[in-house]
């Protein structure tokens, strides 16, 4: 693996973002909208004293963590789409760049996007609602890391589908994360879900993170077991996602689709 080539691929995206206001805005726009709309709704509900302790904290924490996961995923899938949109894919794949270097670059870009969006969300939550995400303390690091890895796995799967099926699969770059959201215990505990859906939730690493976050905010105790389960599942899913990418790359080469993906 060549570090220079990975840096070159990252630099290509930094050049893109440094002069594209719409792309920069896109990183901040949705976290801001989510926090404003859902944050004020939460505060409004709180006034009716619905009897749920730390209701605002739970909700705002969930919003920030969800955005971290979503940005990590988009860091991969949207960055890949940038290459498709600019018809640059063939130039990359006829260069000595290895697929693993391409993946490593996209993962690094994803970390950058996630940190930027996460920091913006945390700052806005503090400004508007005096909510401090750092209340979760040192466990913030394994929480964020787990969300990042899950975001990578979803991003790589959606990218692989776009590589295989073309721009008609583009909707996955925005929608695949939301397909998981109802079962990921983002805003409510797994126990709220119907019994037959709960095993699905237990297979989603993010459900342990969101339940863990609520536990930390409620009791202060770090749920190490949940974090370990999330990390274990994430390891499996990331490995499967990477395997899925290589499988699709092989199929695309066999079917001669790379030219279409690079010029469509």
């Amino acid at each position: 693996m060549s570090l220079v080539r990975i840096i070159a691929l990252i630099q290509r995206h930094l050049y893109l973002y440094q002069r594209s206001l719409p792309r920069i805005m896109e990183i901040f726009f949705w976290p801001l909208m989510d926090l404003l709309v859902w944050g004020f709704i939460t505060v409004y509900f709180q006034r009716f004293n619905i009897g749920l302790p730390r209701f605002v904290s739970f909700f705002l924490g969930a919003l920030i963590f969800w955005d971290i996961l979503y940005r990590a995923q988009q860091g991969i899938s949207i960055s890949f789409l940038e290459e498709v949109w600019s018809k640059n894919l063939l130039n990359l794949f006829v260069s000595p760049m290895r697929p693993c270097e391409f993946l490593a670059a996209l993962m690094t870009i994803s970390v950058g996007k996630m940190l930027t969006a996460g920091a913006a969300s945390a700052l806005l939550a503090w400004i508007f609602y005096s909510f401090n995400i750092f209340l979760v303390g040192i466990s913030l690091i394994p929480f964020v890391f787990n969300l990042l890895v899950m975001g990578w796995a979803i991003g790589i799967i959606s990218m692989s589908a776009i590589l295989r099926y073309g721009q008609e699969a583009e909707v996955l770059a925005w929608g695949l994360g939301f397909l998981i959201q109802p079962f990921a215990a983002v805003f409510y505990p797994v126990s709220i879900l119907p019994i037959f859906v709960q095993p699905i939730a237990r297979m989603i690493p993010a459900s342990y993170v969101f339940e863990g976050m609520r536990a930390v905010l409620e009791t202060g105790a770090i749920p190490y077991e949940s974090l370990m389960k999330a990390a274990f599942l994430n390891g499996i899913y990331l490995a499967l996602a990477i395997r899925f990418f290589y499988y699709n790359l092989r199929i695309v080469k066999e079917k001669g689709l790379l030219l279409h993906r690079g010029t469509e």
Partner: peptide, 17 residues
């Protein structure tokens, strides 16, 4: 039939490659 990223300058594109 293949382009280079249009939001980059010529120099930036060639530097990346």
């Amino acid at each position: 039939y293949v382009s280079m990223p249009t939001s980059l300058t010529l120099w930036e594109n060639l530097s990346v490659f």
